[in-house]
């Protein structure tokens, strides 16, 4: 390490201060959500610390208890889980073969197929014509309506195609010489090597479906089918919770805590899964997007 000049020290102080301030700007609002969710009734009034910190002896998990024992809330969670699991599975089942087929340069008709898909990326008919298709198919008011029409993301296909193209060709050729069919090559050679991209694209799809808010509103009218984000938005908009959650006026959880607890529960799966997959997605997002 060379001797640090004064300029270098000042520069490092500035850079790291900037980074820490940025991190605080990201974390403070999230921290406040957590703190508000454990605020007991009556604490807000005597609050002197802007609700950033609460003495531990005043914590209350009443808001979580209320939400997690309420049938409407649990039903919305169940709908969201169904949409996420079914949607992600369908998306991967449709994306993997498409990306693999597009990655084979010798395939007759490959360019036609690429243009066939890129055209839909460049020009889309818009909301209403697609709405009419979903309606004509009779999907309206079925959970399938919120994941089948959006099952393939063109960007994800291109990312995965880039990954397949980067795999060594020798492996496939060796397998073909041994008499393996195209399907065997895909299932026995390619897929085991593709764990990083499958996890990454799976996470992208999973996040997309868990967060879905607009399509349920567009395609579902039945309140029993509404996923968590729609219920959460209703809870957040409500000045009294009676409509959505049978709010007990004598409970120990103030309405702000219920809202914050709802936000926290909805974001929890994302925040919990994310560190495990982080190292995969930065790598594969880069190899896919910084192409030459």
């Amino acid at each position: 390490m060379p001797v640090k000049s004064r300029e270098e020290i000042v520069f490092q102080i500035l850079v790291n201060t900037f980074l820490i301030v940025f991190l605080l700007i990201i974390l403070v609002p999230m921290w406040r959500v957590v703190m508000m969710s454990v605020t007991p009734l009556g604490y807000a009034a005597e609050d002197t610390s802007f609700g950033m910190l609460i003495p531990p002896w005043k914590w209350s998990i009443e808001a979580y208890k209320q939400l997690l024992t309420h049938p409407n809330f649990l039903h919305a969670v169940w709908n969201s889980v169904q949409i996420t699991v079914l949607g992600t599975s369908l998306s991967l089942i449709l994306t993997v073969p498409l990306a693999y087929v597009l990655s084979i340069r010798t395939l007759p008709g490959r360019n036609i197929l690429i243009n066939f898909i890129l055209l839909t990326y460049l020009f889309s008919a818009g909301m209403i014509p697609t709405f009419l298709v979903v309606h004509d198919l009779g999907l309206t008011d079925h959970l399938a309506a919120v994941f089948v029409p959006v099952a393939i993301g063109v960007y994800n296909v291109l990312l995965m195609k880039g990954f397949f193209e980067g795999l060594p060709v020798e492996l496939e050729e060796a397998a073909r010489l041994d008499g393996a069919s195209e399907l065997q090559v895909l299932i026995q050679i390619i897929l085991p090597l593709s764990k990083p991209i499958l996890l990454t694209i799976g996470l992208f799809y999973g996040v997309f479906y868990w967060n879905e808010f607009f399509y349920p509103i567009l395609y579902l009218n039945d309140n029993d089918l509404m996923p968590l984000p729609v219920l959460l938005r209703n809870i957040l908009m409500a000045s009294s919770l009676n409509e959505y959650v049978e709010y007990d006026a004598f409970s120990n959880a103030p309405i702000q805590s219920l809202k914050a607890a709802g936000v926290f529960i909805t974001m929890l799966p994302m925040v919990a899964v994310y560190p495990f997959i982080q190292r995969y997605f930065t790598k594969s997002t880069l190899t896919g997007s910084v192409k030459q």
């Binding site: 609002p29 406040r32 967060n211 938005r233 957040l236 702000q256 909805t266 994302m270 994310y274």
Partner: peptide, 16 residues
């Protein structure tokens, strides 16, 4: 992290 949060969650965070 915030990239993975939906706008409904963002709405809740903004309210706080």
């Amino acid at each position: 992290i915030p990239h993975f949060l939906s706008w409904v969650i963002m709405f809740g965070v903004l309210l706080t």
